[in-house]
Simulated assay, not measured.
Amino acid sequence: MWVLGVTGGIGSGKTTVTDLFAALGITIVDADVIARHIMDPGGPALNAVIERYGEQALQADGQLNRAWLRERIFQDNDAKAWLNALTHPLIRTQIHRQLEQAASPYVILSAPLLVENKLTELCDRVLVVDVPEEVQRQRTIKRDQVSAAQVELIMQSQCSREERLAFADDVINNDVSRDALQQQVEALHQHYLVNARQAAATKEC
Protein backbone atom coordinates (compact mmCIF):
# COMPACT_ATOMS: atom_id res chain seq x y z
CA MET A 1 0.00 0.00 0.00
CA TRP A 2 1.28 3.46 -0.96
CA VAL A 3 1.31 5.61 2.21
CA LEU A 4 1.00 9.38 2.41
CA GLY A 5 2.10 10.85 5.71
CA VAL A 6 0.16 13.94 6.74
CA THR A 7 1.33 16.14 9.59
CA GLY A 8 1.11 19.67 10.90
CA GLY A 9 1.60 21.59 14.11
CA ILE A 10 -1.19 21.98 16.62
CA GLY A 11 -3.94 24.25 15.29
CA SER A 12 -2.85 23.84 11.67
CA GLY A 13 -6.11 22.18 10.64
CA LYS A 14 -4.65 18.79 9.82
CA THR A 15 -7.93 17.00 10.58
CA THR A 16 -9.86 19.37 8.30
CA VAL A 17 -7.48 18.41 5.48
CA THR A 18 -7.64 14.67 6.11
CA ASP A 19 -11.45 14.86 6.27
CA LEU A 20 -11.38 16.28 2.73
CA PHE A 21 -9.21 13.38 1.57
CA ALA A 22 -11.58 10.96 3.31
CA ALA A 23 -14.49 12.48 1.38
CA LEU A 24 -12.59 11.52 -1.79
CA GLY A 25 -12.57 7.88 -0.66
CA ILE A 26 -9.15 7.68 0.99
CA THR A 27 -8.66 5.67 4.16
CA ILE A 28 -7.25 7.69 7.06
CA VAL A 29 -5.15 5.99 9.72
CA ASP A 30 -5.11 8.60 12.48
CA ALA A 31 -2.39 8.22 15.10
CA ASP A 32 -4.28 10.54 17.47
CA VAL A 33 -7.39 8.34 17.34
CA ILE A 34 -5.28 5.24 17.90
CA ALA A 35 -3.52 6.91 20.84
CA ARG A 36 -6.86 7.79 22.44
CA HIS A 37 -8.11 4.20 22.17
CA ILE A 38 -4.85 2.87 23.59
CA MET A 39 -6.04 4.47 26.83
CA ASP A 40 -9.46 2.81 26.86
CA PRO A 41 -10.55 1.53 30.31
CA GLY A 42 -9.38 -1.98 31.06
CA GLY A 43 -6.43 -1.82 28.67
CA PRO A 44 -2.81 -2.27 29.74
CA ALA A 45 -1.84 1.35 29.04
CA LEU A 46 -4.50 2.92 31.28
CA ASN A 47 -3.86 0.31 33.97
CA ALA A 48 -0.19 1.32 33.97
CA VAL A 49 -1.13 5.00 34.29
CA ILE A 50 -3.40 4.21 37.25
CA GLU A 51 -0.65 2.16 38.90
CA ARG A 52 1.76 5.09 38.56
CA TYR A 53 -0.53 8.01 39.41
CA GLY A 54 -3.55 6.56 41.16
CA GLU A 55 -7.21 7.51 40.77
CA GLN A 56 -6.35 11.19 40.26
CA ALA A 57 -5.52 10.29 36.66
CA LEU A 58 -9.16 9.34 36.01
CA GLN A 59 -12.40 11.16 35.44
CA ALA A 60 -15.49 10.23 37.44
CA ASP A 61 -16.60 7.81 34.70
CA GLY A 62 -13.33 5.86 34.78
CA GLN A 63 -11.96 7.38 31.60
CA LEU A 64 -8.48 8.87 31.49
CA ASN A 65 -8.38 12.50 32.59
CA ARG A 66 -6.47 13.63 29.51
CA ALA A 67 -6.23 17.28 30.54
CA TRP A 68 -4.69 16.30 33.87
CA LEU A 69 -2.20 13.92 32.26
CA ARG A 70 -1.29 16.42 29.53
CA GLU A 71 -0.48 19.06 32.13
CA ARG A 72 1.54 16.54 34.12
CA ILE A 73 3.77 15.40 31.26
CA PHE A 74 4.42 18.90 29.96
CA GLN A 75 5.79 19.82 33.38
CA ASP A 76 7.87 16.68 33.91
CA ASN A 77 10.27 15.33 31.27
CA ASP A 78 10.66 12.02 33.11
CA ALA A 79 6.89 11.54 33.13
CA LYS A 80 6.75 12.32 29.42
CA ALA A 81 9.51 9.82 28.66
CA TRP A 82 7.75 7.16 30.72
CA LEU A 83 4.43 7.71 28.94
CA ASN A 84 6.07 7.63 25.52
CA ALA A 85 7.83 4.36 26.34
CA LEU A 86 4.49 2.89 27.42
CA THR A 87 2.32 4.02 24.53
CA HIS A 88 4.52 4.31 21.43
CA PRO A 89 5.01 0.55 20.85
CA LEU A 90 1.26 -0.05 21.25
CA ILE A 91 0.43 2.79 18.88
CA ARG A 92 2.92 1.59 16.24
CA THR A 93 1.46 -1.90 16.31
CA GLN A 94 -2.02 -0.52 15.63
CA ILE A 95 -0.72 1.81 12.90
CA HIS A 96 0.90 -1.09 11.05
CA ARG A 97 -2.26 -3.19 11.36
CA GLN A 98 -4.55 -0.44 10.04
CA LEU A 99 -2.20 0.48 7.17
CA GLU A 100 -2.16 -3.16 6.06
CA GLN A 101 -5.96 -3.35 6.17
CA ALA A 102 -6.56 -0.20 4.08
CA ALA A 103 -8.39 -0.80 0.80
CA SER A 104 -8.37 2.66 -0.85
CA PRO A 105 -6.06 3.52 -3.80
CA TYR A 106 -3.59 4.91 -1.27
CA VAL A 107 -3.75 5.39 2.49
CA ILE A 108 -3.03 8.40 4.69
CA LEU A 109 -1.12 8.12 7.95
CA SER A 110 -2.10 11.23 9.88
CA ALA A 111 0.07 12.11 12.88
CA PRO A 112 0.91 15.42 14.56
CA LEU A 113 4.26 13.94 15.61
CA LEU A 114 4.99 12.18 12.32
CA VAL A 115 8.47 13.72 12.17
CA GLU A 116 9.28 13.64 15.87
CA ASN A 117 8.33 9.95 16.26
CA LYS A 118 10.08 8.95 13.02
CA LEU A 119 6.85 7.71 11.46
CA THR A 120 8.07 9.19 8.19
CA GLU A 121 9.89 5.88 7.70
CA LEU A 122 6.48 4.27 7.10
CA CYS A 123 5.55 6.80 4.39
CA ASP A 124 6.22 7.06 0.67
CA ARG A 125 5.58 10.80 0.70
CA VAL A 126 5.00 13.49 3.32
CA LEU A 127 2.41 16.28 3.17
CA VAL A 128 2.67 19.11 5.68
CA VAL A 129 -0.38 21.20 6.55
CA ASP A 130 1.04 24.63 7.25
CA VAL A 131 -0.15 27.89 8.79
CA PRO A 132 1.74 30.76 10.46
CA GLU A 133 2.57 30.10 14.11
CA GLU A 134 0.33 32.94 15.30
CA VAL A 135 -2.60 31.28 13.53
CA GLN A 136 -1.76 28.04 15.33
CA ARG A 137 -1.88 29.84 18.67
CA GLN A 138 -5.18 31.61 18.01
CA ARG A 139 -6.94 28.51 16.68
CA THR A 140 -5.76 26.28 19.51
CA ILE A 141 -6.76 28.70 22.26
CA LYS A 142 -10.22 29.08 20.72
CA ARG A 143 -10.72 25.37 19.96
CA ASP A 144 -9.37 23.83 23.16
CA GLN A 145 -10.18 26.64 25.61
CA VAL A 146 -6.64 26.54 26.99
CA SER A 147 -4.25 29.25 28.07
CA ALA A 148 -1.69 30.84 25.79
CA ALA A 149 1.02 29.47 28.09
CA GLN A 150 -0.16 25.89 27.64
CA VAL A 151 -0.28 26.34 23.86
CA GLU A 152 3.31 27.54 23.94
CA LEU A 153 4.35 24.44 25.90
CA ILE A 154 2.65 22.19 23.35
CA MET A 155 4.26 24.00 20.43
CA GLN A 156 7.67 23.77 22.09
CA SER A 157 7.20 20.00 22.48
CA GLN A 158 6.72 19.68 18.72
CA CYS A 159 9.38 20.29 16.12
CA SER A 160 9.55 23.81 14.75
CA ARG A 161 7.67 24.93 11.68
CA GLU A 162 10.95 25.07 9.76
CA GLU A 163 11.99 21.57 10.83
CA ARG A 164 8.61 20.15 9.83
CA LEU A 165 8.66 21.83 6.42
CA ALA A 166 12.13 20.41 5.78
CA PHE A 167 10.54 16.93 5.68
CA ALA A 168 7.74 17.98 3.33
CA ASP A 169 7.40 16.64 -0.19
CA ASP A 170 4.23 18.71 -0.48
CA VAL A 171 2.74 21.58 1.52
CA ILE A 172 -0.87 22.67 1.93
CA ASN A 173 -1.46 26.26 2.99
CA ASN A 174 -4.41 26.11 5.38
CA ASP A 175 -4.59 29.83 6.09
CA VAL A 176 -7.05 30.18 3.19
CA SER A 177 -10.75 29.87 2.42
CA ARG A 178 -12.49 26.49 2.45
CA ASP A 179 -12.81 26.57 -1.35
CA ALA A 180 -9.10 27.26 -1.79
CA LEU A 181 -8.28 24.45 0.63
CA GLN A 182 -10.54 22.05 -1.27
CA GLN A 183 -8.80 22.92 -4.53
CA GLN A 184 -5.39 22.17 -3.04
CA VAL A 185 -6.58 18.81 -1.73
CA GLU A 186 -8.19 17.76 -5.00
CA ALA A 187 -5.09 18.66 -7.03
CA LEU A 188 -2.83 16.69 -4.70
CA HIS A 189 -5.26 13.76 -4.65
CA GLN A 190 -4.96 13.39 -8.42
CA HIS A 191 -1.18 13.51 -8.09
CA TYR A 192 -1.18 10.84 -5.37
CA LEU A 193 -3.41 8.55 -7.41
CA VAL A 194 -0.78 8.62 -10.16
CA ASN A 195 2.01 8.00 -7.64
CA ALA A 196 0.16 5.04 -6.13
CA ARG A 197 -0.56 3.50 -9.55
CA GLN A 198 3.06 3.88 -10.61
CA ALA A 199 4.29 2.33 -7.36
CA ALA A 200 1.91 -0.62 -7.78
CA ALA A 201 3.02 -1.15 -11.38
CA THR A 202 6.67 -1.08 -10.38
CA LYS A 203 6.04 -3.59 -7.60
CA GLU A 204 4.29 -5.96 -9.99
CA CYS A 205 7.27 -5.83 -12.34
Score class of each variant (00 low, 15 high):
Lys14Leu: 08
Ala201Val: 00
Asp179Gly: 09
Asn47Gln: 15
Arg137Gln: 12
Ile154Glu: 14
Gly54His: 10
Ala201Trp: 00
Gly13Asn: 01
Arg125Gln: 13
Tyr192Asn: 10
Ser160Phe: 07
Glu133Arg: 09
Val128Met: 06
Asp32Thr: 01
Ile108Pro: 08
Gln138Leu: 06
Pro44Phe: 06
Gln184Ala: 01
Asn174Leu: 01
Val3His: 07
Leu24Ser: 14
Gln150Cys: 06
Ser104Asn: 10
Ile38Arg: 06
Val185Glu: 04
Ala81Gly: 15
Ala57Glu: 12
Ile50Phe: 09
Val17Glu: 02
Asp40Thr: 10
Gln98Glu: 14
Arg97Leu: 12
Lys142Cys: 09
Gln56Arg: 15
Glu55His: 14
Arg178Thr: 09
Gln150Met: 14
Lys118Met: 04
His37Gly: 03
Ala48Asn: 11
Thr16Gly: 11
Ile28Trp: 00
Val33Glu: 15
Leu69Trp: 02
Cys205Thr: 09
Gly42Gln: 09
Phe74Met: 09
Val176Asp: 01
Ala180Cys: 01
Glu133Leu: 06
Ile108Asn: 05
Glu51Ser: 15
Thr93Glu: 15
Ala180Pro: 00
Phe167Ile: 03
Trp2Cys: 10
Asp30Thr: 00
Arg178Met: 07
Trp2Glu: 06
Ser104Glu: 11
Lys80Arg: 14
Gln183His: 10
Ala22Trp: 08
Arg178Val: 05
Glu116Lys: 07
Phe74Glu: 13
Gln183Trp: 03
Ala111Phe: 03
Ile95Arg: 06
Ile34Asn: 04
Ser157Gly: 10
Lys203Leu: 12
Asn117Tyr: 08
Leu90Val: 08
Gln158Tyr: 01
Glu163Ala: 15
Ile38Met: 09
Ala180Thr: 03
Ser157Asn: 13
Thr7Tyr: 05
Ala149Gln: 14
Ile73Leu: 11
Gln145Glu: 15
Ile38Pro: 05
Leu114Gly: 04
Glu121Val: 13
Ala168Asn: 10
Thr7Arg: 02
Thr27Val: 07
Arg139Ser: 07
Ile95Ser: 13
Thr7Ala: 13
Glu121Gly: 11
Asp179Gln: 12
Gly9Pro: 07
Ile172Ala: 01
Ala149Thr: 12
Val49Phe: 14
Ala111Trp: 09
Arg52Leu: 09
Gln156Ile: 05
Ile10His: 06
Ser110Gly: 02
Gly54Thr: 05
Asn65Ala: 14
Phe74Gly: 13
Pro132Ala: 01
Arg72Ser: 11
Gly43Cys: 04
Cys123Val: 07
Asn117Phe: 08
Leu181Asp: 03
Leu119Glu: 11
Thr18Phe: 01
Pro112Cys: 06
Asp169Gly: 10
Tyr53Ala: 11
Tyr53Glu: 15
Leu90Gln: 11
Pro44Thr: 11
Trp2His: 14
Val146Tyr: 02
Arg178His: 09
Ala31Asp: 03
Ala196Val: 02
Leu46Val: 05
Ala81Asn: 13
Ala48Gly: 11
Glu116Ala: 04
Arg92Asn: 13
Gln59Phe: 06
Trp2Met: 13
Ser160Val: 09
Val135Trp: 00
Pro105Gln: 08
Ala31Arg: 00
Thr18Asp: 02
Gly5Thr: 03
Arg36Leu: 08
Pro132Gln: 04
Ile154Arg: 08
Asp61Gln: 03
Ala196Trp: 01
Arg197Gln: 14
Val17Phe: 00
